[in-house]
Design a binder for these strands. Sequence first.
DNA 1: TAAGATTTGTTCGTATGTATC
DNA 2: GGATACATACGAACAAATCTT
Lengths: 252, 252
Amino acid sequence: MSGQTRLDQSRRSRPAHVAEAIKDWVVDKGLQPGDRLPGEAELIARFAMSKGTIREAMRMLQAQGLVVTKTGPGGGTFVGRVSKDRARALLANYFYFQQISIDDIYQVRIALEPELAASLAGRLTAAQIAELETIMETYAEPAPDADTERAQHVASLRFHARLAEFGANALLSFFIGFMAQILTDLTVYRRLYAEPNHELWREGRDHHLRLVRALREGDADAARAVMADHMRMARLRMGDQETVVMKRFIAE
Amino acid sequence: MSGQTRLDQSRRSRPAHVAEAIKDWVVDKGLQPGDRLPGEAELIARFAMSKGTIREAMRMLQAQGLVVTKTGPGGGTFVGRVSKDRARALLANYFYFQQISIDDIYQVRIALEPELAASLAGRLTAAQIAELETIMETYAEPAPDADTERAQHVASLRFHARLAEFGANALLSFFIGFMAQILTDLTVYRRLYAEPNHELWREGRDHHLRLVRALREGDADAARAVMADHMRMARLRMGDQETVVMKRFIAE
DNA sequence: TAAGATTTGTTCGTATGTATC
DNA sequence: GGATACATACGAACAAATCTT
């Protein structure tokens, strides 16, 4: 009889309904990333719907990063782990029509990053410390021109993003990484920094140096304090700029 | 033949390619929510692709909350503002396969909510204060049973979510609301609280009362301190529970 | 109320592309 | 290189929703 999932009691379109059903089915079955979903033919039979409808449903899941498809023998649709980049892009879409200022971002950074720094003190591996120091080499010397300074700023944002990834808290890590991504995009697509400022450069670099030292020595309070200073300074540095609203779809 | 847009130099599927192109087009044109996109027929002509492919592309955009479609005359596809709920659901998908503990959530809440409270002191309207007080009525009296206590906890989470929405910082508001949503789901779908505890209830209620008073009186430091206490207490309250990982697709 | 117009929604048959064996 | 298995894409027809007259 093929339990034909009772033609839409909702007002949702059929593909959306099918997509939700498949999502629920994946959760119920406890499928893991990489596990294979039924092929098109089987889904067509199971839901008693046409190929087109099933395919549209799959596209919806694909757009959310929940599945990936491969052609050819052994191919098909597989459960996918939503990537960090995709999650960031999807969330950025939400903020596309929201008013967000640089200062809004810094209000959150000031609250989160010192806490992160404190929680990481004494918990980084030698390799992780080394990676941070490698990133810092990018801005070991003052930038001679605006382009170089932009590259340095992107690198210093990467420093923060990597630091967040070193922590065990995936939620905190994502939030911080998301903000770093926004600031990176703003830096790349707009010229957020007018001209190199050696004084500010020195101050920022010193903060990173002192932060790494505190992290290595396991001094949580110092790490928190340095990061707090660092964020406050960066906020002022941005404060010169108008409260630019961020408006952009980040590419997937 | 037929000018076909140069068969995908990328390895992306055609619908994904079309979806990105439309997204870029919307950004370029500066279209706003409610603006109408070209109809199916025109897109078929413009991209030289079949109806099915165009529709799959639209479904991808729809799944991301970027467009909505309506049938009938005057219908079509329209630019849509990504809703808060959808953004939360899409982000929750990312965390489905990530390890997130209650304590992770509280580490972030402890960092963010006091900052929010301080920034809101003296800035709430009478109507907003009144709304908070209405919510608080839900848990004005101790809960007689576990179900009631659960409802009270959901209400108190709504208190926090609303408070965040009253702020001007959409980023901060979203992060806090997202965490409140996760905790609400955990409360509803699992029994996060074993049995009513009058002592904890009184303490939580008092925190909210004192917080509202500080907000009304414009005492930022007091608001921050009360919220910090409140969060620390709540963290301990949850600490009794195992560090339950959150694993669930939140429904759209 | 009813009919017609407009636009998306759905189906089916067929053909093509792609990766594995 | 050919057979196989699978997703991908196309096109024509029909269905449903909804606005206008």
